[in-house]
Computed example of a mutant assay.
Amino acid sequence: MSWYLALPSAVLGVLMLAGGAATLSSGWIMPWQRGSVYRPRFFGWGQLLMGAALAIQASTALVDDRATRSTVQGAGVGFLLAGLILLTLSQRPRQDA
């Protein structure tokens, strides 16, 4: 991965980690997302996982070994998918029967 791709990915990952930490600690969500998020805890954990995934993907620019790089990228993709699932679940209304 080139540095011009890794640097913005790392910055975005840190911002998502900060947003996830803020959501988990205080329940604060960005104003444009407040109307669609029904479960802030799921949303916070999803943001943390996606931020970690972006940071992991950016860190592969530092790895020279091909096998290690593919393993690290696989972990990043797993975190990305888990975060996406949590973000999707946070936006579904509860099914109270």
Rank of each mutant, 00 (worst) to 15 (best):
L54E: 02
A53M: 07
S9E: 01
S90D: 01
A52M: 04
L87R: 08
P93R: 08
M50Y: 09
G44H: 01
L7D: 03
L54N: 03
G51N: 05
V72I: 15
Q47S: 14
Y38P: 11
F79E: 00
L62H: 14
R94F: 12
G46S: 05
L5K: 08
W32R: 15
T71D: 13
L17N: 07
W45E: 06
S70I: 02
L49V: 06
S9I: 00
G51F: 01
L12Q: 03
V14T: 10
R66E: 13
A97F: 11
R39T: 07
A67G: 11
L5A: 05
M1L: 15
F42C: 02
Q57D: 08
M50N: 06
L24R: 01
A10I: 09
V37C: 08
G20Q: 01
R94S: 12
M30T: 11
G51Y: 00
L48K: 07
P40Y: 01
L87P: 09
V14S: 11
Q73G: 12
G51R: 03
R41N: 07
S9T: 00
A75H: 03
L48C: 05
A61M: 03
R34D: 08
A55W: 02
G27E: 10
S70Y: 03
F42W: 03
Q33W: 00
Q47M: 09
A61H: 13
L24W: 14
L84Y: 02
L54T: 00
G13A: 12
D64T: 14
R34I: 11
R92Q: 10
T88S: 03
S59W: 02
R94Y: 04
G20W: 06
P8M: 04
L15T: 14
S59L: 13
A75G: 14
V11W: 08
